[in-house]
Design a protein around this nucleic acid. Structure first.
Lengths: 344, 344
DNA sequence: CGAGATCTTGACAACGTTGTCGTGAAGGCT
DNA sequence: AGCCTTCACGACAACGTTGTCAAGATCTCG
C-alpha cells in the first residue's frame, strides 16, 4: 500500500486534486477511485472506505470539464437560459423558477439577456452550445427560428417559454394570453363599461396578438362593436405607452375603462390617470401582476401570470428527454379596485 | 490534399464537428486548424482562408470542455454569481449588471440563489468550482467564510458584493450604508422632525449594522437623543416588518417620521400608513429604490442604490487579475414627497 | 552560393475523466 | 480435483483541445 507524503494542516495545494492524487493516497488505481466517486458497483467495502477518506482528506471534487468531455451521454448538468432581460421582474422570477428545479437535480444554470437583439441571441446560443448545455430554455423572438433550428440539429435540447417558434419541434410553456385578456376585459364589461380602450405592444410580438384577440373576443361576446380609435398597439416603451394613454383620454368621447396589455403599460397608465385625477373614475385592468399593485389607491386589478411556475415547468420539461407539446400555465384575475370602478 | 465526402444540404450531423473534421476537409493537420481558430500567428494566408471556409461549411465551434481541460491558464470564460435571490429586483438588476460586462468579454454567467441558506451556498460554491469558473461573484453571508477560504485556496478568484467577509483577501463592492442612511435621516431632520422611528433588519446582517449606524450618526449630529423605543431591528420579513411599524405607530408618543432600512420594509410601511390614513402626515424615507415608488401618493423618498452599477463593477474586478480592495458605489437621495412632509 | 535565420506546418503528449477489456483470485459445482 | 463463473481491480484508450518540439521549406545576407 503506497503512501505518499501529503500536506496536511497547511494551506491546500493550488492545483486541485485529481483522481490520481486520491488514488495514490488510497493506494489503489485511479480507475477504482472513479468507480467509488460515481457509485459504480464492484468495489469492496474496505477499499471503498479507504478511497472515501482519501478523497475527503484531499478535498477531491471531479473536474466537470473532463467529465463532460469523456462521458458517453455528453451530459454536463448545465442549462442555458436566454431571456429578454434578467433584470425585468417577470423574467427574473421565471429564471428563479428554472433555478429552483435545476438546483434540486444538481444542474447549474447559465443566464443571459438578449434585450430582443437578434445578434446577441445568436451569439449566446452559440456560446451556450460551445459549453455543451444539456438544454436551452429560451424566450424566443420572431427571428430566433434560424439559429434554433441549427442548435436543434446539433443535438441541443430546447424548451421555449412565453412564446412559440413556428415549425420548431420543441416543448413550449405558454400562458393562454387570449383567454386571460378576455377574462380581464369581460370583468370591466360586467361592471357596465362599453367603451373600453386597449393599449398593447406591436402585434408582431406573439403575446400581443393573443391578448388583443382576447380583447376582441370579449367585446364580440358582449355584442360591442370594436371602435378602432380605442385600440392602440404602439405601447412598447414607457414613452410611447404614455403617449397612447394620453391620446385615448384626449378623445372627444374617451373610454370609460382601459385594458393595458403589459405591466409597463399598466404602470404608465396608472401614472397618467393619477396626474389627471382620473384614478377613481376610469376603470383599469392590466395584464401582468406587479409588486405594489395592491398598495396603489385604488389597487390595480390585474390578470396575473405565474412566472415562477412557468420557469419551473420549463426546467422540468428540459430535464425530461421525451417531453414535447404545448403546456399552458393558467392566469388569474385579481380584483383590487381599479377594475371594479363602475361605468358612469 | 485529402478530401472526405461530407454531407451537404441535408441536416447537419448529430455529432458536432471537431478540429479533425475541419482539418480533413481543408486538407491540413488539426493543429493548423487550431491555430487558425485561435488566431495564432504563423499560418499562411492561403491555408488560413481554406481552413476558414472549411470551418464555416461544417459549422465548427470549439468544444469548451476540451479547451478548459487543456489550456495552461485554465480559463473557462465563465463566472459564477451567487446571490440571495435572483428573483428579487435588487439582485436581479445586479445580476444584469454582471452580465452586461461579462457578455462584452465573451464570458458566460452562472446564476444561483441561496435564500441565505448556508448549505446551499456551500453546494453551489462547490458546483461552480467543479465547473472551473474563472471567478465567483458572491453576496456572502456571515457563515460564508469557511467555504470561501477553501475556494480561494483552490485557486478560485472571488469578488464579494453587498457585504464583506472578514479576513478574506478578495475585492469587495459595497455601498456606503452608513453614509446613505445618515443622509436619509438628515433629510427628515431638515424638515423639522425629531422623533424619528427606525425599522431595520437583524444587526447580524452587515448592511443592517451600517444603516443603523448612519441613523445614530444623524441623530447625534443634530443633538437628538436616541430613544430606544423608536428603534426596531426585527423587520426581516413582511409580517414582522408590519408588526414593527404598527408597534411604533401605536406608541403613546409615536414618531412623526419613519426611516425604513430596506425596500421590503418600506413597502410594508407604506401599506400600514395608507391603511391608517397617515400617508400625508407621517414622513417616510426608505433605503433602496423600488419600482413605482414615484407613482404612490405621496411618492416615496428613498436612498437609492445602483445595483446595475454594483454588478458591472464586480464583473470588471472579476476580470482584472490584480484587483483588490474595497470599492464603494455611491447612493443617491431621491426626494419624492413622503420624506418632505414637515413635522407637525 | 552557402550557412544560418525565419517561416510554415505537422507529430505527439498531455489535460482529468469514463468506457472497455483483461487478469488474477475467490467461489461454486460436478 | 478440475473447470467454470463471479468478483474486484487495474491497464489503457479515448474525448477534443492546447502546448511543445521538430522538420522541411524558404528567405536573408555576407
Amino acid at each position: 500500500m503506497a503512501s505518499l507524503p501529503i500536506p496536511s494542516g497547511g494551506p491546500l495545494p493550488l492545483r486541485r486534486p485529481t483522481l490520481r492524487d486520491v488514488a495514490a493516497l488510497a493506494g489503489v488505481s485511479f480507475k477504482t477511485v472513479s468507480r467509488v466517486v460515481n457509485g459504480e458497483p464492484g468495489v469492496s467495502p474496505d477499499v471503498m472506505s479507504r478511497v472515501r477518506s482519501a478523497a475527503d482528506t484531499l478535498g477531491y471534487r471531479p473536474n466537470a470539464a473532463a467529465t463532460a468531455l469523456r462521458r458517453a451521454d455528453r451530459r454536463t448538468a448545465t442549462f442555458g437560459v436566454l431571456l429578454e432581460d434578467a433584470g425585468n421582474p417577470f423574467f427574473a422570477t421565471l429564471l428563479r423558477g428554472v433555478e429552483d428545479v435545476a438546483r434540486q437535480r444538481g444542474v447549474a444554470v447559465f443566464a443571459s439577456s438578449t434585450d430582443l437583439d437578434r445578434d446577441r441571441e445568436r451569439d449566446m446560443t452559440a456560446a451556450f452550445g460551445a459549453r455543451q448545455v444539456d438544454a436551452l430554455i429560451i424566450a424566443p423572438t420572431e427571428s430566433s427560428a434560424q439559429h434554433l433550428h441549427r442548435a436543434l440539429a446539433e443535438g441541443a435540447r430546447i424548451v421555449l417559454v412565453d412564446r412559440p417558434v413556428e415549425g420548431l419541434t420543441a416543448p413550449v410553456v405558454l400562458i393562454d394570453n387570449q383567454r386571460g385578456a378576455r377574462e380581464g376585459v369581460e370583468h370591466v364589461i360586467a361592471h357596465g363599461h362599453r367603451r373600453i380602450g386597449y393599449i398593447g405592444r406591436d402585434p408582431s410580438i406573439f403575446t400581443s396578438r393573443g391578448r388583443y384577440a382576447g380583447y376582441v373576443d370579449a367585446l364580440e361576446a358582449a355584442g360591442i362593436a370594436i371602435d378602432p380609435s380605442l385600440v392602440r398597439l404602439e405601447g412598447g416603451t414607457r414613452t410611447s405607452a404614455q403617449a397612447q394613454v394620453e391620446a385615448l383620454l384626449d378623445l372627444a368621447d374617451p373610454p370609460t375603462a382601459l385594458f393595458t396589455a403589459q405591466d409597463i403599460i399598466t404602470m404608465t397608465a396608472v401614472s397618467v390617470l393619477q396626474r389627471r385625477g382620473l384614478s377613481d373614475s376610469v376603470a383599469l385592468v392590466g395584464f401582468d401582476d406587479f409588486e405594489l399593485a395592491d398598495l396603489l389607491r385604488p389597487g390595480i386589478t390585474v390578470v396575473a401570470q405565474d412566472p415562477r411556475r412557468i420557469g419551473a415547468l420549463a426546467a422540468e420539461l428540459a430535464l425530461d428527454p421525451v417531453s414535447s407539446g404545448v403546456h399552458l400555465v393558467p392566469t388569474r384575475l385579481i380584483p383590487r379596485g381599479s377594475g371594479e370602478i363602475p361605468a358612469p
